[in-house]
Design a protein around this nucleic acid. Sequence first.
DNA 1: AAATATAGACAGTGACACTATCGATAGTTA
DNA 2: TAACTATCGATAGTGTCACTGTCTATATTT
Lengths: 208, 208
Amino acid sequence: MKMSELSECSGVSVASIKFYQREELLPEAERTSPNQARYDSNHVDRLRLIRALVDVGGLSVATVREVLAAAEADIPLDWAMGVAQHAIPGSVELPVESTRGVAEIDRVTEEMGWTVSADNPGRGMAARVIDSYVQLDHEELLSVLPAYSAAAVMVARTDLASIALQPSRLRVSETVVVGTVLGDSLFAGLRRMAQEDEAHRQYAPVQA
Amino acid sequence: MKMSELSECSGVSVASIKFYQREELLPEAERTSPNQARYDSNHVDRLRLIRALVDVGGLSVATVREVLAAAEADIPLDWAMGVAQHAIPGSVELPVESTRGVAEIDRVTEEMGWTVSADNPGRGMAARVIDSYVQLDHEELLSVLPAYSAAAVMVARTDLASIALQPSRLRVSETVVVGTVLGDSLFAGLRRMAQEDEAHRQYAPVQA
DNA sequence: AAATATAGACAGTGACACTATCGATAGTTA
DNA sequence: TAACTATCGATAGTGTCACTGTCTATATTT
């Protein structure tokens, strides 16, 4: 497969493919001469994955590079889940200061009986949100934590079940990445839908 | 309160405040003379809200403007939930074509007995993710839909319960915005934590 | 009166994700 | 085999976003 065909069947412009090559998001191509290379379906798949992560998952190109690199590393199966952990949109290196948020999240962790390492990126992210709730004078929103946590367990169990179906290690990594990154968007969408339904139920139940 | 004080006690630079004023993200200030104005705690609160939505929620300035405008409009209480609906990161005007994703999401809607309008943004977002799953050859991930939907209901019920606590209509709008936008991040964080815990449980239960 | 601050206008910056152009080959077609 | 098209790699340019800096004319403070 030549560059122009790769472009055509992936729907990504030649210029963009070159850009992704420069950014090392694509695997090496088989060289047939110093200025010619042959591409295959792996490249097509990779391009589609990149576009999904960027367009649907909202990741930056830099984050996609990290996530793909992690997914390719030979990670022990029991920690495959960590692969996509760092693909969190608002995830900045936050010092593990003891803020109110950290305390609340640690309390949730304890109450749920979870085993979570201190550097789990979700922990920092959740703590940051709690800190924002408090700073914005919406402390009453802390009351959502138990139900959110229970729902998170349901989702996480389902996530684990879907990776258990995978035949190969590589496939597991990809499933984790896709399922985690795009899963965030999927859940957000379903939540919006469920919100609308609940609003109808609670505020306009008259028409029954 | 003068500009410099507003800057100081909100933690936002004067230049940035001016930028937000240009972008019409801040309410008008009380003018004391043609080139002097007085700010109050509303401005401080608004600035904090903007920063939380941008930094923690990952919204763009343009989206924040839309969300704030919607939150200020006089929306009937039973539809306050719609206010923050459009604050979805990857939310692009997608034509309501009948894709596989739309079909799957409609099936979920039916099975859950939800009442969801056709233009609910979550519907488009969820459908887009499903389409990506299919295109990426991860059709097996469709199996997560029932559990995700059930979890979404738990979260949505909790969301509605927390807005029911609010004393005023304005406060309701703000709670919906904050709870929905930041809630997405909070849930994503909790999900990562629950994933790690489940991984430990399923793959390393030996150390008991 | 001098020093500092403010409003408003507008230009500039740096990061990001491409996009365009170029020169040196290489393959393809007439 | 000559003309034409495509490719590679490098480099430069574009448009958007979210600020940031500078400037002028006032206004306030000391």
